[in-house]
Design a protein around this nucleic acid. Structure first.
Lengths: 235, 235
DNA sequence: ACAAAAGTGTTGCTCATACACCCATGT
DNA sequence: ACATGGGTGTATGAGCAACACTTTTGT
């Protein structure tokens, strides 16, 4: 078999927008680049697609390298391929977003890359078009989370309703009525109430809930409307 | 500046899923490949990303080559990059879907490529992973059209309500109540009634409508719910 | 006159929103 | 006892789905 003739081959990379939630704020994990060009500048975690792997596999590998995590929820956002986006050499980059339980990631590994969590309104200047990528990732996350229960991917095994509300409020930069939010949430049938309470946030304490995995899988594709009037809040 | 060392460069292509609607059925435009490998097999229209163009530009160029059309609604679906997807040489392909007014496309140009329109349940066997790409395109189209008024992109300047209902029914493979459908449609404020009637479909004739461009732009991102219970119909 | 498709209105009901008070506990 | 955040119930209204008959006109 001969190869296609007369065509230019390009570098193909993946970049990961890694979201985490600490119970209070939504954050993104960034690294300080260890090599030229743009050494020491902040950047998304990324890597080149290798000859034997698909872009999805590359993204999974890259995520694991940084966080130690596998089996994480990831979704392809889109390919970024403007000719001048990497001044060193033309590179097509396929962006992914990942939703991880921030408590599970291994700080030791991440420290080798000089990684840090940043809240969304404190993102430092980034190399190349990584700021655009984050913008698209947020957009896609907002869009999807308004309709599908994907934000549970960010939560630990046990979580409280007020925590979840914080998360939604942070993502849409809005304030929700707790009574309506709670009712809506319960009506999904996704939550299982625990006996135990989380006493960290208040004196009374808030009940922990766990995700009902079976219902979750079943309703993952359902249109659930977590956010009132999403029209106003997206973009 | 030195290039990144020790990395493999790959071919990067785009492939276009071109949707058209003839007033009755939703169709896809396919070509018969004119070169090896897989010469004479049916395929999506595609092409390699050139050194001076972004993937979006490549997709636009490829679409124009086949249909003669510019300024068409296109959206990136996702990158397909399984290592073995093209047996001749590893190629990453970025898939796009386009929605065109089937009456506008220029048959002369398309005939040079041996192009033909196929209804969705008559798609012939295709090369590589093009069948998967079409599947993803349909999925994305269904998903998006359930919430946003993108299907107007498929229609000519003047169209009737029953035509539009056919389109929705075809895409979701379901039957809609014409009273509810019509009311929902009118309430969007997107349509402008014309005096003229289309007498092709019936003896009584159906009024033509035009799209209100201004409202269309304004409400393009709005969540409009054209389809009752979309949960049941997606996938 | 009849066949075939277009067009139109009403009602019941579900679901979303708005809103205010009591509860439990640590200090 | 008081301050703090957690938890719950109701009433109103908007919007969606279900449903059947009349209109137009070509043959």
């Amino acid at each position: 078999m001969t190869r296609y003739s007369g065509q230019t081959r390009l570098l193909v990379a993946v970049d990961c927008i890694i979201f985490g939630f600490d119970g209070q704020d939504l954050k993104i994990l960034l690294i300080q680049r260890g090599f030229e060009p743009e050494k020491n500048k902040w950047s998304l975690m990324g890597g080149f697609v290798q000859p034997d792997e698909s872009p999805d596999e590359a993204a999974t590998r890259v995520l694991k390298e940084l966080t130690g995590l596998e089996g994480v929820y990831m979704e392809q956002i889109q390919a970024f391929g403007h000719p001048g986006r990497d001044p060193q050499e033309r590179t097509i980059s396929i962006a992914y977003f990942a939703l991880i339980d921030i408590h599970k990631y291994e700080k030791q590994i991440s420290d080798q890359y000089h990684a840090e969590w940043f809240t969304l309104n404190n993102i430092p200047p980034l190399i190349f078009d990584h700021t655009d990528m984050i913008k698209m990732a947020r957009k896609k996350l907002r869009y999807k989370a308004a309709i599908h229960p994907i934000l549970f991917e960010l939560l630990p095994g046990k979580f409280t309703v007020p925590q979840l509300q914080n998360l939604y409020q942070g993502i849409y930069d809005t304030v929700l009525d707790k009574r309506n939010f709670s009712r809506k949430l319960m009506s999904t049938g996704l939550l299982v109430k625990q006996q135990e309470k989380d006493k960290a946030g208040s004196k009374k304490g808030a009940f922990y809930f766990k995700l009902d995995k079976k219902q979750y899988k079943k309703k993952f594709q359902a249109f659930l409307n977590f956010i009132p009037n999403p029209d106003n809040l997206l973009n």
